[in-house]
């Protein structure tokens, strides 16, 4: 098998607090780095074009689309994926609220919705349902769980305000 000359450069990614040394080319997206090289499949590929939000992860606490981010851009930064949200098996307040409100059906957009929701709460965009709807609109859900997503985000935001959750 021909081996690419540029494939030898390793990239160090800090994912969910663990360091991963990945042998990937500079053109590899963060999304493919997570899924195909770090074997963390919780982050989903819905479009690979920055249009659906399924690949939303946090980089230094900000929500980004992993499909529009090169892995090499985020070397040394703190990457959080859905796998890193629950701590010691205890679900994040947003994860709990999504289950309670049945805020998903097929589950494929759910990782991205939840990562967006955590960021949306931390950004202070959950003051009204209208605001939640607007700031959660980068995440498509074809099953149509939107009303329940709004309810879950509203609920989780309140829980995190009360200190029940562990939002940053």
């Amino acid at each position: 098998m021909a081996k690419s000359a540029i494939a030898d450069a390793g990239i160090r990614l800090c994912i969910n607090g663990s360091e991963h040394l990945l042998q990937i080319e500079p053109r590899v997206t963060l999304l493919d780095a997570l899924r195909e090289y770090a074997h963390l499949f919780g982050t989903k590929k819905g479009c690979d074009q920055g249009q659906c939000g399924a690949c939303t992860v946090h980089v230094d606490g900000r929500r980004v689309l992993a499909c529009l981010t090169l892995a090499s851009q985020v070397e040394g930064l703190a990457i959080t994926t859905i796998e890193g949200l629950a701590v010691n098996g205890s679900l994040h307040a947003v994860q709990e609220a999504f289950i309670r409100h049945d805020a998903f059906q097929c589950g494929y957009c759910t990782s991205g919705q939840i990562m967006s929701a955590v960021a949306c709460i931390n950004e202070g965009r959950t003051g009204s349902d209208t605001s939640i709807r607007e700031y959660m609109s980068g995440n498509l859900c074809r099953c149509g769980a939107y009303p329940h997503i709004v309810a879950a985000v509203r609920d989780a935001a309140q829980a995190m305000d009360l200190g029940e959750g562990r939002g940053r």
């Binding site: 499949f41 919780g42 289950i99 589950g107």
Partner: peptide, 16 residues
Amino acid sequence: IARADGVAKVTGRADY
């Protein structure tokens, strides 16, 4: 009753 596969889906462990 909440979904039996709920935890798998909110933690990214459901294997597509």
